[in-house]
Structure formats: structure tokens, C-alpha cells
């Protein structure tokens, strides 16, 4: 828990680094500072999805502490959902700044939208299974199957189908103009946002554990 509480120190430093310390990028200018927030948020949404999927696998293998593991997968997905929506919004603002359109159906954008749809589907499935005692099994299978398909989407589809726009400004930017200071800041913020995710995740898990214990002690 202490490690996660570091986020209180690191987040202000990260904001300082990204807004004041780092020089603006060559082509985009100050708008490039969006990068330091957009990329970590996108990273967290994939990480949360991965964590939820791994918990589902653990749940199906161990078949113990069912309620707690199910809640852990669900909590991670809930945080991931919020971060995915944030990624989509911040990404479209950035797209507006750099390409002049909010939405372009670039492969990267497509994959994040599909990730969002997977999350939405997971939550609707979860609520439709409310009265089913086997909810943990079915929702875990769905998460695992979508986790298997996700790599197909994220890595293969953009490569097989190059984006309609030739190399985007951002991609060029990332490849050519990323200086050392930018790289450090980006890395710093990725770590910070990961800690933030972990922190929120721990809190929600603790809360779920309390609820589960309360309910099970209720009627004995």
C-alpha cells in the first residue's frame, strides 16, 4: 500500500515535469504536452483489461475465494472502463489539434474503441447474469476469450491494414522527435498513472472484501 501512496508525491512532480519542464515538441508545439497524459491513460486501460483477464484465469484455475476473485476482476474492469473512456476523449481532442478532425478511424483509435465495446459488453453481460449462480464462470470466460482476441485486434489489424492516412504526425513525432527529456517525462507519468491505478484498485478490492465478509457473516 505504501508503494501506491507514492502517487501523492509523484503526481504533482509529473504534472510539473510535463507542463513546465519539458520543452515543446518541434511540429506540434505546446499541444504535444497532451502526449504525457494521453499515453499513460491509454496504457492503464490496457493494463486494467489485462489484470481483469489474469484474475479470471486464476479464478477458473483455482476455483476458490470465488466471490473475492470475481470482484477483483470486476473492479479492474470498472477502472479500466473509466480510463478507456478518458483515452477516447483525450485522444479525440488531440486528433482535433493535430489532424483537424475529432475522429479518423485510425487503427489505434479503432482498437481503443473496440476495447471500450468489450468493456461495455462485459458489464452488460455481468448485469444480465445477476440471478445466475454461475456468473463468475461465465463472465470470466468472456473476459478470457476477449483477452485472447485483443492481441489480434491491437497488433495484427493495424499492421495488416495500414491506416488510411499515411504516417500521421504523431507517429512521426514519436519516432523522430522524441528527445531524452520527453522520454523521461513520459516514462515518469506512465509509472505514476500505473501507481494511481494500483492505488484505486487496492481501495476497491478492500471494499469488495469487506462487503463479501459482511454478507457471508450476515445470515449464519
Amino acid at each position: 500500500m505504501f508503494l501506491y501512496r507514492l502517487v501523492y508525491v509523484l503526481m504533482p512532480i509529473g504534472i510539473f515535469l510535463s507542463l513546465l519542464w519539458v520543452p515543446p515538441a518541434n511540429i506540434l508545439g505546446d499541444a504535444s504536452r497532451i502526449l504525457y497524459f494521453h499515453v499513460p491513460v491509454a496504457w492503464v486501460s490496457f493494463l486494467a483489461f489485462l489484470v481483469a483477464g489474469l484474475h479470471s484465469i486464476a479464478l477458473l484455475i483455482k476455483k476458490s475465494e470465488i466471490l473475492y476473485r470475481e470482484a477483483m476482476a470486476y473492479n479492474s474492469a470498472a477502472i479500466g472502463m473509466v480510463f478507456t473512456v478518458l483515452t477516447v476523449i483525450t485522444g479525440s481532442i488531440w486528433a482535433k489539434v493535430s489532424w483537424g478532425h475529432f475522429w479518423n478511424w485510425d487503427p489505434r483509435e479503432t482498437s481503443i474503441v473496440i476495447l471500450m465495446l468489450i468493456y461495455i459488453a462485459y458489464f452488460s453481460l455481468f448485469s444480465a447474469l445477476k440471478s445466475n449462480p454461475n456468473r463468475w464462470g461465465i463472465s470470466s470466460v468472456y473476459l478470457i476469450i476477449s483477452m485472447i482476441i485483443a492481441p489480434f485486434l491491437i497488433f495484427i489489424v493495424p499492421r495488416v491494414y495500414p491506416s488510411l492516412h499515411p504516417d500521421t504526425i504523431i507517429n512521426q513525432d514519436k519516432k523522430i522527435h522524441l528527445e531524452a527529456s520527453m522520454r523521461i517525462t513520459l516514462f515518469f507519468l506512465v509509472v505514476t498513472f500505473t501507481l494511481l491505478y494500483g492505488y484505486i484498485y487496492k481501495i476497491t478490492n478492500k471494499l469488495s472484501l469487506i462487503i463479501i465478509k459482511l454478507r457471508s457473516s450476515h445470515d449464519i
Binding site: I15, D30, A31, V82, L86, I89, T90, I93, V97
Partner: peptide, 20 residues
């Protein structure tokens, strides 16, 4: 001013976390 967009992005992220 491009910093305006940066400001909006940061604001949106914090609103999202606040909702959470």
C-alpha cells in the same frame, strides 16, 4: 492557444478520476 487543449485534457482526466 495549444495550452488550452492541454488544460482541457488534464481537466477531463481529473473529472474521470473524480467520478471513479
Amino acid at each position: 492557444n495549444p495550452l488550452f487543449f492541454v488544460f482541457i485534457v488534464v481537466l477531463i482526466i481529473w473529472i474521470g478520476i473524480a467520478l471513479l
